[in-house]
Write a protein that binds this DNA or RNA. Structure first.
Length: 824
RNA sequence: GCCGAGGUGGCGGAAUAGGCAGACGCACCGGACUUAAAAUCCGGUGGGAUUUAACUCCCGUGUCGGUUCGAGUCCGACCCUCGGUACCA
């Protein structure tokens, strides 16, 4: 046996063996299942360290659960539609199809080099027609239910990606992918009605007990539920009405003006032809020039203009001015507000600036006067100056005014959400075609299910300009109407790739199925995903969309569950010198280089040991060497004693203190590692516990007479180290296991069990404190009587010193830990 | 501003129910092995005071205060860092 772990030969050998014996193949059997899933990657062509971390974490769960006796599903696939493929085509003239499949082949090879325990028979790729056929099928199901619809809307357009984006993909007014500034466009686009599920998406967070709170909070904020009322205001000398949403209908008597967003459709209707037309239109033009930051930044200046139009406050019957202002956004609520400057800070600032009436209708502790206010009083106090609401609390006033509005037919209670419908059209080629046809006679007609998939044509020119490249492919565009058979045209936009990844976890349960998206029995057996692992950057995007799809699929009867991911682990980033690794900055550590120089087990062990999973991890070459040193230390535990180990298979007794202590540490280690992996998901401390056991083994070998080594005990320790380490360093442990003479894979063995009794010490150290300060320590029997312990403690010389001349007030005994004597 | 997470040695990090702060690893220092080096093994390593040394003592988990026999852990106020979000009516 070699003196060092020879990863270059050992790792490929076992990777081949695992593949040959189909070790990680999973099937539905009559046994408890465990579905572990990591977010599948975009096939950029090469692994990066974030991948290594993500997939190493998942592999530990998969291997551990398998050893625990679960029937484990651990699949892998490719989120393989997307812009980079198309950009490569534009730049290098390589077809996205071949570019993507080449990348997949290369990355699959790299994944295998990491020794990850995937059932590769279940591999899916979202760009494969066998997969996107079902993405299209889901689109049609959504369409049938009215949850997919086409509408002209003011949408986000990324000039660099040359496509529209969903709200979730716009960050601070910039494209989430390329950081270009996003501009507004009025376009007719396809939407998914995720807002229908807003309430459920919010409520079902309570089912997700093991999701990080911050992810749930981010989703809560994104969905942005608020309770209030919708109220209609009449306009003087017009049949039109202004509809507003407010969370403070209790303050309606204080509504002294109204504001429309510059984009509000009523603006043109009302203003055109009046003497204010020019002034208003030039103001609106100016507002449109403001970029996102200027308009919506926290300290953006409030700008407005009077339309000259008057609305009627339905409660006071007073005429109030209708303003247009930049601080009211078309994208939230109705795009119009009733302004209550005394009780809303924004309205207050605006009213001060444009000299509008401020009328107090909520009383605070001190009497408030409109003229004296320096800021709005936004508390929910007692209502005043409000006729029949006077004297009521917020809650009472809310109920009463809403009842009044409903009775009058001018308003109602309403729940408003910040969440918008999901815009899924993309003016790009490399995505799932939207299966819709436009017929002059029949209108919008869905592609019949039997005609799916609508395949992407391959003979496409990439210009990167303006509209979907599919628009220029005549054979694709021109088709016949499924209804009337006349010439018709296909939809040329493709779907947002987040649609593809919203349901892939379901397809893994039946990846080969040709006539159905999933088989319900199989889906019900494997779902939900028990453990999902991925980056926090998907807290809103992917994780919200996937939850939406799961709920829809559940409502369609495809599966009996409502949430896709029971447990979520969001792993931290891999940093180099405190900064995110990035190609453009050139601060990259290439996983392939680490595999070449240290092997997969070292890479995995380092990355799992260096930090707890959720936290960011700073790359350290010294740390990698430390991991390598440790693995070789384990290796030598076997290699240096291989002959004795091979014959030492019998029972043993514990002959002396050293052996008792080693045996105790063995069981302590099993307990710690089990708890850390299974309950706490703290792999760094799990590994440190294995290190402690290895150190204990060395200590034993060092301290015992070399003739007297108890090899049967020692063998059990070594075997346990191997088993505990197997999920972390699968190749080396497999090799060592076979060196010990076993034929069957270490990854098919049972997880070691510990004996609680064996973890206990006969003699324990008790800390002795006087007035809370440690003054001495005593060795006593573990089961000592507390009174006896107190007596022994007080006999100690050092303790006596501190007790001399003092009176004992109190004696505290914490069993197995300490004694504290309080004196005065 | 609001919401969330966090602040512990030279560094990454541990302390699971309020009970020895600093597990494990890195780095560093010393020793063994070696002609030598590498590798490996053994030992030391929070700061300070005193001491030849041992012993011993004091301080120490962002700051200040509180609860408690006892606080990294609980409570209150504050400071800082990171993440999310931001005219959301």
């Amino acid at each position: 046996m070699k003196g060092r772990y020879d990863y270059k030969n050992v790792e490929p050998k076992w990777q081949q063996s695992w593949e040959d014996t189909q070790l990680y193949k999973s099937e539905v059997i009559n046994a408890p299942k465990y579905y572990v899933l990591e977010m599948f990657p975009y096939p950029s062509g090469n692994l990066h360290m974030g991948h290594v971390r993500n997939y190493s974490l998942g592999d530990v769960f998969a291997r551990y659960k398998r050893m625990e006796g679960y029937n484990v599903l651990h699949p892998m696939g490719w989120d393989s539609f997307g812009l980079p493929a198309e950009n490569a085509a534009i730049k290098h003239g390589i077809h996205p199809n071949s570019w993507t499949w080449d990348n997949i082949a290369n990355m699959r090879k790299q994944f295998k080099m990491l020794g990850l325990s995937y059932d590769w028979d279940r591999e899916v790729a979202t760009c494969h027609p066998d997969y996107y056929k079902w993405t299209q099928w889901l689109f049609l199901e959504l369409y049938k239910k009215g949850l997919a619809y086409k509408q002209k809307a003011n949408v986000n357009w990324c000039p660099s990606c040359q496509t529209v984006l969903a709200n979730e993909q716009v960050v601070n007014g910039e494209c989430e992918r390329c950081d270009s500034e996003v501009i507004d466009k009025d376009l007719e686009q396809w939407f998914f009605k995720i807002t229908d599920y807003a309430e459920e998406l919010l409520n079902d967070h309570k089912l997700l007990k093991n999701w990080p709170d911050r992810v749930k909070t981010m989703q809560n904020n994104w969905i942005g539920r608020s309770e209030g009322a919708q109220i209609k205001f009449k306009i003087k000398d017009s049949d039109e009405q202004i509809e507003v949403f407010t969370t403070r209908p209790d303050t309606i008597f204080g509504a002294t003006y109204m504001v429309l967003a510059p984009e509000h459709p009523l603006v043109k209707k009302l203003v055109v032809g009046t003497d204010k037309e020019e002034e208003v239109m030039s103001f609106i033009a100016k507002m449109k020039e403001q970029d996102e930051e200027e308009r919506t930044g926290s300290d953006a200046e409030k700008l407005g203009v009077d339309t000259g139009i008057k609305a009627i406050n339905p409660l006071t019957d007073e005429e109030i001015p209708v303003m247009i202002a930049n601080y009211v956004l078309m994208g939230y609520g109705t795009g119009a507000i009733m302004a209550v400057p005394a009780h809303d800070q924004r309205d207050f600032e605006f009213a001060k600036k444009y000299d509008l009436e401020i009328k107090v209708v909520v009383q605070g502790e001190k009497e408030l006067k409109g003229a004296d206010l320096t800021e709005a009083y936004t508390e929910k106090g007692k209502v005043v100056n409000s006729d029949f609401l006077n004297g009521l609390s917020f809650k009472e006033a809310f109920t009463k005014i809403v009842a009044h509005l409903e009775a009058e037919g001018i308003g109602k209670k309403e729940v408003n959400y910040r969440l918008r419908d999901w815009l899924i059209s993309r003016q790009r080629y490399w995505g799932t075609p939207i299966p819709m046809i436009y017929c002059d006679d029949c209108g919008v007609v869905p592609v019949p299910e039997k005609d799916l998939p609508v395949e992407l044509p391959t003979n496409v020119k990439f210009t990167g300009q303006g509209q979907s490249p599919l628009a220029n492919v005549e054979e694709f565009v021109n088709t016949t109407c499924p209804k009337c058979g006349k010439a018709a045209k296909r939809e040329v936009d493709t779907m947002d790739t987040f649609v593809d990844s919203s349901w892939y976890y379901m397809r893994y349960t039946c990846p080969e199925l040709a006539d159905k998206i999933v088989d319900k029995d199989r889906a019900n057996y494997w779902m939900n995903v028990d453990q999902y692992i991925g980056g926090i950057e998907h807290a809103i995007l992917h994780l919200l969309y996937a939850r939406f799809f799961m709920k829809f699929m559940s409502d369609q009867g495809l599966v009996d569950y409502k949430e896709p991911f029971d447990n979520l682990l969001t792993q931290g980033m891999v940093l180099l010198d405190g900064a995110k690794m990035s190609k453009s900055k050139g601060n990259i550590v290439d996983p392939m280089e680490i595999l070449e120089n240290h092997g997969a087990d070292v890479a995995r062990l380092f990355i799992l040991f260096a930090a707890p999973p959720e936290r960011d991890l700073d790359w350290s070459d010294e740390g990698v060497e430390g991991a390598e040193r440790f693995l070789n230390r384990v290796w030598r535990l076997v290699s240096e004693h291989i002959n004795d180990l091979k014959v030492a298979t019998g029972d043993y007794s514990l002959n002396n203190k050293l052996e008792k202590e080693l045996h105790r540490q063995l069981h302590v280690a099993i307990r710690s590692v089990t708890v850390d992996v299974a309950e706490r998901q703290q792999f760094n401390t799990a590994i440190s516990s294995i290190m402690e056991l290895v150190n204990a083994a060395y200590k034993y070998l060092n301290e015992i007479d070399s003739e007297e080594v108890n090899y049967s005990l020692y063998r059990e320790v070594v075997e346990t180290v191997i088993l505990l380490l197997a999920p972390f360093a699968p190749h080396m442990t497999e090799e060592l296991w076979s060196e010990l003479g076993y034929q069957e894979s270490v990854h098919l063995q049972s997880w070691p069990e510990y004996d609680e009794e064996a973890t206990k010490k006969d003699e324990i150290t008790i800390v002795v404190q006087v007035n809370g300060k440690v003054r001495d320590k005593v060795e006593v029997a573990a089961d000592i009587d507390p009174e006896e312990l107190k007596r022994i403690v007080k006999e100690q010389d050092k303790v006596q010193e501190y007790l001399e001349g003092k009176t004992i007030i109190k004696e505290i005994v914490v069993p197995k830990r300490l004694v504290n004597i309080v004196v005065k």
